[in-house]
């Protein structure tokens, strides 16, 4: 009997496909998320929109809060640690969280290195803006990739950019010969074995979700049609006027992302979505997506 194998880690990621992972900051929100049909919750102290507003250093959550959320829901509980902060990750693993997000939403702890995720028994998800970044994270042991988007912006434009970039990079690899793939690995800064694999399959070897800016059922449909296998929703739910019905609508939208009549029905009367930000109004040094190497 073996625990913590890559198959077991990737297996949980596979089982989360077609489901929505929702950011929650309290047990009450976790309950709303589970009741709305979330497949997992991300327990964090402040949602990205508030982290952005408040400034300061954003760290892993208080274990007490994570335990309270674990006690109230039956679905997997995820939690975030800072980029490169393997001690925060070790503590989260000891708490028995089901998945760790090594996340650009928190303030990075290491500006050169990410966590060596292969040493952990629980799976990791990491953000990526392009294929090279995605493959470096997979090389370190990530069992799931999510496009970064721009967390807490309520603006889908960056998530679209990142998903299109990754998909285009992968398509291009399938058109190249072996003699071109080493140069490609060098250019992308990615492990050659993974480049070789994608040149054959045209897809990532782990599930590929979308995050960072999803606010409406239509946003979900857009990302799924661009190739996301499901979505993370952070500020988009609990910063909207009426979180419970919006959470429910987002869940339905993932399943019925290509049924437009149904999406129209789902989108009806949800109240105002989160207000959101134009990316141009976020100074470059405050863009979370820039974090990660």
């Amino acid at each position: 009997m073996k625990t913590g194998t890559f198959e077991v880690k990737k297996g949980l990621a596979e089982m989360l496909k077609g489901g929505v992972i929702m950011d929650v900051t309290t047990p009450e929100q976790a309950k709303i998320a589970e009741d709305a049909g979330a497949v997992a919750v991300m327990a964090l102290e402040r949602i990205p929109a508030d982290i952005r507003r408040d400034g300061g250093i954003a760290r892993a959550s208080d274990p007490k809060m994570i335990k309270e959320i674990q006690a109230i829901v039956s679905i997997p509980v995820m939690a975030k640690c800072r980029i490169g902060h393997f001690a925060e990750a070790q503590i989260l693993e000891a708490l028995g969280v089901d998945f760790i997000d090594e996340s650009e939403v928190l303030t990075p702890a290491d500006e050169s290195n990410h966590i060596w995720k292969q040493d952990f028994k629980i799976p990791f998800v990491c953000g990526a803006r392009d294929l090279g970044e995605a493959l470096r994270r997979i090389g370190e042991g990530a069992a799931m990739i999510r496009t970064k988007g721009e967390a807490g912006s309520g603006n889908i434009v960056e998530a679209v950019r990142h998903m299109r970039t990754i998909q285009n990079d992968m398509k291009r690899l399938t058109t190249l010969g072996y003699d071109q793939l080493m140069a490609e690995a060098k250019k992308l800064g990615a492990p050659l074995e993974l480049i070789l694999e994608i040149s054959k399959t045209g897809k990532l070897p782990v599930p590929n979700f979308s995050a960072g800016g999803i606010a409406t059922p239509a946003d979900v449909s857009l990302m799924m049609q661009l190739g996301a296998e499901s979505v993370f929703v952070g500020s988009g739910i609990f910063k909207s006027e009426d979180p419970a019905p919006r959470a429910r609508a987002i869940v339905e939208a993932v399943t019925y992302y290509n049924d437009f009549l149904k999406l129209a029905e789902i989108s009806e009367g949800l109240g105002s979505p989160m207000k959101g930000l134009d990316i141009k109004d976020i100074p470059e040094n405050q863009r979370m997506q820039e974090r990660g190497w």
Binding site: M1, K2, T3, V8, L12, D98, F99, P123
Partner: peptide, 14 residues
């Protein structure tokens, strides 16, 4: 009985 072998850290292959 749901999740009866434990959380993800106890997920296994055999």
């Amino acid at each position: 009985q749901r999740n009866s072998w434990g959380r993800q850290v106890f997920s296994f292959q055999s």
